[in-house]
């Protein structure tokens, strides 16, 4: 029993089944990430004025990830084109690079998360937020000591730093700031529970990363064990690559919006 239009396109719609299926699925994914973007918007406009951070995240790893995804998008579509044109070797190389890029993305993201977990923030009673590196041996029950980030991400934080800088002596060492626990209202490293910004940042990038992993698994399968179909039913195989490619490009699309929204704006 053969399902019609599995490989050949249906004349009036011009589509084969899986292509329609993946576009429908992508429409639902637009609404999924849309729900998360709506959360971002409302948490941001509803945040305590001055507490929502601006460019608090390191740009380096994120920029690297953006380039990795752009490259993988190009190689994915090249891999599909090579398979379609019957160039098996090129298909293997391009698709292989795509999988490696996906793994690189996950690796860089893990490195980035690790970096976040090692940055700390302190919020005082007057809503001043100061972020920086923790000085562990000068942090105890009575005080918290930070080496503050040179570029603070909130207005109040910047002012606080300037005030501290005026009185302090400029030695060759990094400036350390000590906070009395009694004055501190909130203290944590950068984890999802730190603030609504970090909640939405970790959730969105985490869900996106899960999609990267999912896509990587599928593309790896098509590169490896599944590539047998290249020889038994090439047209069907090329369709599968196209469908996987569409999903992969969508994953890149989401990142194209995530990157400026979370890291730049």
């Amino acid at each position: 029993m053969q399902i019609p239009y599995e490989v050949e396109a249906r004349p009036d719609t011009g589509l084969y089944n899986a292509k329609l299926g993946i576009w429908l699925f992508l429409a639902s994914e637009v609404m999924l990430f849309g729900g998360l973007f709506s959360a971002y918007i409302f948490l941001r406009i509803g945040a305590e004025p001055g507490l929502w951070p601006h460019q608090i995240l390191e740009l380096g790893p994120a920029f690297a990830n953006t380039m990795v995804l752009i490259i993988s998008s190009v190689t994915m579509v090249m891999g599909w084109a090579s398979a379609k044109l019957g160039e098996y070797k090129k298909f293997k190389i391009f698709t292989g690079i795509t999988v490696l890029c996906a793994l690189a993305f996950v690796g860089i993201k893990s490195y980035e998360y690790h970096g976040d977990f090692n940055r700390y923030g302190v919020i005082l009673a007057d809503k001043t937020q100061v972020t920086g590196e923790l000085v562990k041996d000068k942090t105890n029950d009575r005080q918290i000591t930070l080496i503050p980030d040179a570029k603070q991400s909130t207005e109040l934080g910047r002012e606080y730093l300037k005030k501290q800088g005026e009185g302090a002596e400029k030695s060759g060492e990094e400036q350390e700031l000590a906070f009395d626990r009694k004055d501190v209202v909130w203290f944590s490293n950068f984890v999802p529970s730190y603030s609504t910004f970090f909640s939405v940042y970790f959730t969105m990038t985490g869900l996106h990363a899960l999609h990267v992993i999912g896509g990587a698994v599928v593309i790896f399968y098509l590169w490896g064990p599944g590539s047998r179909m290249y020889f038994t039913d090439r047209k069907h195989f090329v369709n599968r690559l196209e469908v996987a490619g569409l999903f992969w490009h969508f994953v890149e699309l989401v990142w194209i919006f995530l990157f400026p929204v979370l890291y730049l704006l």
Binding site: S28, M31, G34, L43, P192, S193, S195, V200, T203
Partner: peptide
């Protein structure tokens, strides 16, 4: 179903984070 369910799935993930990871997506000050 295709277009209306996903925002609830997103909200479900957020409420799960609130309960398990201590986030404050829906928890007011």
């Amino acid at each position: 179903l295709l277009l209306a369910f996903p925002p609830l799935e997103a909200a479900g993930v957020m409420q799960l984070m609130d309960r398990v990871a201590g986030t404050s997506f829906f928890m007011p000050s």
